[in-house]
Design a protein around this nucleic acid. Sequence first.
DNA 1: AGTGTATCCTGCAGGC
DNA 2: TGCCTGCAGGATACAC
Length: 279
Amino acid sequence: MPELPEAETIVRGLHPILSGTSLGHPDVLRADVVEGRSGALAAGTEGRTVTGVERRGKNIRMILDDGTSVVINLGMSGRLLHRPADSTEPEPSHPAVIWPLESGGLLVYHDIRRFGRIRLLDAAEYATWSRGLGPEPLGSAFTLSYLVEALGRSKSPLRSWLLDQRRVAGIGNIYALEALHLAGLHPALPASLIPSASVRLLRRSIRAVLREAIASGGTTLRDYRRVDGGRGSYATHLRVYGREGEACDVCTAPIERMVFGQRSAFYCPQCQRRPEGDL
DNA sequence: AGTGTATCCTGCAGGC
DNA sequence: TGCCTGCAGGATACAC
């Protein structure tokens, strides 16, 4: 998806548009993106005022004036688009849910592949759901001691470890691989075998990569768009992701690709030493 | 606990 | 041009 920086960019774009405005009756064109009955989403959001827009991991949360939350996970191809009343842009090709806004504009949840999910949660349900996610990597709970402890009791490859939302929330395949390159760690290295001196570097690398990507408005490869339809520009800064065969910016060795955990992993064989036994 | 596999879907790029 | 294969920012459920 859309990972943390993309969700953050969307939240920042949405906040000024939605805060304090009320939602109209949503048109649910693709019920399969709604968890539960789409009628419940319609009944629960129509006429409600949005009091806040936040991010949790890679999820976008609209908080409504009755304390409920609309939580949106964009899956692989989800977009949250704002169409102003006077928009002359072409109609979105794959709208899934459309909320009319007080302003006369529209909030469109758009999703080509429909792997995304929209759920309506009351305050207690939201709290339970949020507790199931790990700490925010840019937040204060993502401490060195948390990482040391959590990595230490896992044999998962580092890349898989970073993708697990229960361990840390918001990292996906792009930023996991980018952070591992920056930290000089092989994606397949078992988490508990990370040199203790590298944990601090990994933490710093994760935070640096996420902050850089947010500053660029995220990474648009195909589907991700900002609220206004614009692209994120971080693709031009990627160190390894999608760059198989290209020269590493650090050492000029050709970047390699391997597959594990069902997904491509890109890495520099020179900057990111293989786990031992695999040579 | 961890891995491999399959599934949900559509679009696009590349090979022939 | 057309067909076919493989691939994609995610999440989950299953068997082993």
